[in-house]
């Protein structure tokens, strides 16, 4: 059997910290950031009945962050009476997006084709966005489950991208940039985004310049959004583990530095 190295102990420690805090089943209180408040206010400002385009632009690997974000947002949207139309510009987002919309729609007793719809996946995202700007029906002649476009009452109300009240991109990569560059700039549609934490710094400049109406990022953002809509979820459940794991990493950095400088000074004396 292989001898355990220091990194193994570090991983083991992290697992104990995360699993231990999760078993406590606590949901700590937290302050809500201005970014999350802005997104919540924007969704709130859309009139009930507005049709919004929700684009699931992520891979399955981002699910631990994307699912709490998307669930909190969809709960807010359905609760407010918005009518989301889902699409996916990345293949793996298709099944994830469809399942999430079905689950949250069922919580609010929404009816497929009238209160929400899911159009499915289109490859070549730039071509897909440009095509949506010309005609939604030509881009998606059928929905994800095979209904012809005109057979769904909800879809008969939208013809092109600018007919949507907003585009909400749920993304783990640079797809939001394409929505801003092609969707907003060319077809004047408002774009907002729920993104993984790693993408927050990439999109901050777009929020500052007003090209991105609002942005919520990461598990922390999901927890804050859950607090604003008053419904608990995976975001708030994961916050204690998130805080504990960060403290654990800080402690490791501190210990590592102490060991490094102690060893160096000893070598210097020797």
């Amino acid at each position: 059997m292989k001898k355990l190295e220091s990194r193994h102990w570090a991983f083991l420690g992290l697992a104990i910290v995360v699993i231990g805090t999760m078993l406590l089943n606590l949901e700590p209180d937290l302050d809500v950031s201005p970014d999350t408040i802005r997104m919540h206010a924007f969704i709130d400002s859309l009139p009930a009945g507005s049709i919004i385009l929700v684009s699931f632009d992520h891979e399955a690997s981002a699910l631990p962050e994307i699912k709490p974000l998307a669930t909190a947002f969809l709960r807010h949207a359905f609760g407010k009476g918005l009518r989301p139309v889902g699409i996916a510009l990345m293949a793996e987002g298709t099944a994830v997006g469809y399942r999430l919309m079905e689950q949250v729609a069922a919580e609010y007793h929404k009816q497929y084709g009238i209160d929400y719809a899911f159009l499915g996946y289109q490859p070549q995202y730039i071509a897909a966005i440009l095509s949506l700007g010309e005609s939604v029906k030509q881009t998606f002649p059928r929905d994800y489950v095979g209904h012809p476009y005109d057979s769904l009452p909800l879809l008969r109300e939208v013809h092109k991208l600018s007919d949507f009240g907003a585009v909400i991109s749920i993304a783990d990569g640079n797809m939001v940039t394409h929505w801003v560059e092609y969707g907003r700039a060319r077809f004047n549609v408002t774009v907002a985004a729920f993104v993984t934490a790693v993408m927050v710094t990439s999109y901050d400049p777009y929020v500052s310049s007003g090209q991105l109406r609002a942005m919520v990022g990461g598990l922390r953002g999901a927890a804050e959004y859950e607090k604003l809509i008053g419904i608990g979820g995976a975001g708030r459940r994961g916050m204690l583990a998130q805080a504990a794991s960060h403290l654990y990493v800080l402690a490791l950095i501190l210990v590592g530095n102490v060991i490094y400088f102690t060893t160096r000074s000893r070598k210097g004396r020797g």
Binding site: A197, V198, T201, R237, G238, Q242
Partner: peptide, 20 residues
């Protein structure tokens, strides 16, 4: 530094999601 911090946060969230 900020981007790296967010990346660490993102990876922790991934592990927390699987642990949950």
């Amino acid at each position: 530094g900020t981007t790296f911090g967010y990346t660490v946060m993102s990876r922790m969230s991934t592990f927390i999601g699987r642990a949950e």
